[in-house]
């Protein structure tokens, strides 16, 4: 239960961090909040030879409201997102999602950028970012670029980031007038990883749903006229989507169960999107986040 030895660097700039990662090659790993990486290192499931800690790099924390975009710094913690009043007002799903992550002690350290770069299939942020059509701002040896979320997540715990790339921010399009979003998940106990969860984004009759905890990567489905359908036809559509999605079986739940529950969490995510708090209270009432 102790990590193997590694070389530790805490550079003061993104450029210096990229340089150190270039030198380290496949031995290198970025350390942000460490709430996923450090347990994997304690178990020796991860054995990076070089750790590049971003804690001294300024400008990677906080939320900026730019024309047309909301930019969330990669090192912004789940707790900072949860407590951010302006963000909760403009995009309530961010607070509702942060509330579902781990426990207080984890939310205080864990970061949104770390979660996205870690790409756990059951994590909330990759799915939220995909549902919101966000992009990752990435710095690498060739400079800065933006990578749409769909192109970032390549598989379970796998992204298309190169060894010397650093995810520095998430860039979320400002919600259009009338756009709403919400989140709902099923977990065994408060703070546990989701067995199945969904993020819903709606505008008028159109719906975009992104599921997590189901397959190896978040999966989305869209319908332009979902809310024009009868309730029965909506349920049929959600059930059909649940059946066609890729689902994994593991110790906690079978793929068959997950596909059925996918339709239920999608319905509840849609209800969450229709509520004022994007599902924060609903999560609490259900006992999933007491």
């Amino acid at each position: 239960m102790k990590p193997v030895a590694f070389r530790y660097h805490a550079p003061a700039s993104v450029q210096a961090a990229v340089g150190l990662l270039e030198e380290a090659g496949f031995e290198g790993k970025v350390l942000a909040g460490g709430q996923s990486l450090v347990p994997m290192m304690n178990f020796r499931l991860a054995r990076p030879g070089v750790l590049v800690d971003l804690r001294k790099v300024h400008g990677l924390t906080g939320v900026r409201f730019e024309a047309g975009h909301i930019v969330v710094g990669a090192l912004t913690t789940h707790e900072e997102i949860f407590l951010h009043e302006e963000l909760a007002r403009r995009l309530p799903v961010m607070r509702a999602a942060a509330a579902l992550i781990g426990h207080w002690g984890i939310r205080v350290r864990g970061t949104v950028g770390g979660s996205v770069a870690h790409a756990d299939p059951a994590a909330e942020w990759p799915a939220v970012m995909m549902a919101l059509s966000a992009s990752a701002v990435v710095s690498g040896p060739g400079g800065e670029r933006e990578v749409p979320m769909e192109e970032l997540v390549a598989g379970p715990l796998t992204t298309t980031l190169e060894p010397a790339d650093i995810l520095t921010a998430l860039k979320i399009p400002e919600p259009a007038a009338g756009e709403r979003s919400g989140i709902y998940e099923v977990a065994r106990r408060p703070g546990d990883f989701a067995l199945v969860g969904a993020v819903a984004k709606t505008r008028g009759a159109s719906v975009r749903l992104t599921w997590f905890g189901l397959g190896t990567v978040p999966q989305s489905r869209e319908s332009e006229r979902f809310h024009d359908l009868s309730e029965e036809a909506q349920t049929d559509q959600l059930t059909a989507w649940g059946q066609e999605l890729e689902a994994e079986s593991d110790l906690h739940a079978s793929a068959t169960w997950r596909k059925r529950v996918a339709a239920v969490v999608a319905r509840r995510a849609l209800l969450a999107a229709a509520s004022d708090d994007a599902g924060l209270e609903a999560g609490e009432r259900s006992g999933l986040h007491v």
């Binding site: 350390l31 460490g34 709430q35 450090v38 800690d53 707790e79 002690g105 205080v108 350290r109």
Partner: peptide, 15 residues
């Protein structure tokens, strides 16, 4: 840590 509860097993001392 700075008044907030954290897991000391999920942090290296150097951090």
């Amino acid at each position: 840590v700075d008044g907030e509860p954290v897991r000391s097993c999920l942090q290296f001392a150097v951090q």
